[in-house]
Design a binder for these strands. Structure first.
Lengths: 246, 246
DNA sequence: GCAAAAGTGTTAAAGCTACACCCATGT
DNA sequence: ACATGGGTGTAGCTTTAACACTTTTGC
């Protein structure tokens, strides 16, 4: 219940039936506005390991796969146990199974997830007295040396995030129900790491047919900006035949 | 050694350490020219199951993950044991782990692979007296009902193949070292299931910088066609930070 | 009024698509 | 010679990118 570290290892050997320990971990992304920052940066929560191997080092949140539990369910569960939150988007990333990635043999099924910024900051604090003092948010661009092969895993997850933002609508997973085009553009800019032309961005996203304009406006500074909503008919991310499975 | 079926199940329960049986299977694609066919079609080898569950049904080639074996190595090994061949391309597809996908709990790490056509046809025959009479090639467009969730897995692999042919150079995995532009175009046409304009195709692929023209020509019919070679500097498929790993 | 973000317009460059056309070879 | 695939040219359309410009608010 309070197990927060991934790739936790037990010295007990695997039995004679070739069964293997399976860990399920998740790379959780959100956007965070740094103190003096212009645009938000990609941030992710890490868990400090409380036992060997790699005791004291930061690692991806996760846990062991239960016998009667699907992979997606295991990802959701372990993610909730560490951050106390349900992600707005969750997708399998990759299965890592090199024999030397851990002292004992562990295959890690890694997921990646998105969490909406406002909720993310309140979420970790909210969960209070649990083992959550071992959870901390890091800027994805400047991570410390992580346990196991988790640095490489995060790099791959970032690559996937950046790719996917180009051809799917996952940006929605980092926004509230309604948002301005500037806020949507800011998400893209943070992930891609470069500025986008507001005029061209507006036209591209308007022509994509994913956005539904509302009659509401975001006020408070300068000219009010129209609020948009995502068209729910369209899938969040294109995973092909896998979209409604497992 | 002669184990050719994937998702083979033993009734022995998993031990108390939460370890799980891991199967590694591969969707192997090649192109095959049907008797009266204009363009080749995508074909894949399946293995007939020799025991329960799903005895007699066709299934993906694979086997159990060995304790001291990486995932990629397990895919290569089980693939070789069934088809007797080394693939020209091999990439992890997805990890399937729904609890009800098999009578006993099995997590399958599924790979997909490409094999060059000439070798593929000679290969299966070559391996002779092994258990290979239980291997048969099928047209990917008209598969029978397969064991477990293997129909869905093949669908997903096909989707990935069709996507990837658009933004990477995996078509090379289905061709010999040297090839004409018509042969390369035929690969694309087979995978995408539609004809491509020869003129436009030529310009696109020439401008991509992936092809190196040779001074050799394929003769034997009509005007000789120049042979091309792939530029080895460029990676076969773009898997990001994972390209040289695991 | 002025600054700044929202939103519209315009134009040049690049890419894609369709299709006409010439070239070189086997039969 | 002629059929056929190899290879080139080109015109029209769509998409992308850069940037000028107008609109509407807060201060």
């Amino acid at each position: 219940m309070t197990r927060t570290a991934v790739d936790d290892h037990v010295s007990a050997a695997v039995d004679a039936t070739n069964a293997t320990r399976i860990a399920v971990s998740t790379v959780i992304f959100t956007l965070r506005r740094l103190p003096g920052g212009d645009t938000p940066v990609v941030a992710l929560p890490l868990v400090r390991r409380t036992r060997d191997p790699h005791e004291g080092q930061w690692s991806l949140p996760g846990g062991w796969l239960d016998v009667a539990e699907g992979l997606d369910a295991a990802a959701s569960r372990t993610l909730a146990e560490t951050t106390g939150l349900a992600p707005s988007y969750l997708e399998q990333l990759y299965a890592f199974g090199a024999v030397d990635r851990s002292p004992t043999r562990v295959v890690s099924i890694v997921y990646w997830a998105l969490i909406r910024p406002e909720i993310a900051s309140s979420g970790v604090g909210r969960s209070g007295a649990d083992a959550l003092e071992n959870v901390q948010w890091f800027d994805a661009a400047s991570l410390p040396r992580l346990a196991f092969d988790h640095n490489e895993i995060v790099e791959y997850a970032l690559w996937r995030l950046r790719n996917k933002v180009g051809y799917s609508r996952i940006a929605h997973g980092l926004l509230a129900d309604m948002f301005t085009l500037a806020e949507l553009r800011e998400v893209y800019e943070s992930i891609l790491g470069r500025r986008l032309d507001p005029a061209n961005f507006r036209r591209q996203v308007e022509n994509s047919g994913n956005l539904i304009p509302t009659e509401l406006f975001r006020t408070g500074s300068h000219r009010p900006a129209r609020l948009y909503r995502y068209n729910q008919d369209v899938e969040l991310a294109d995973r092909g035949p896998l979209d409604a499975r497992d």
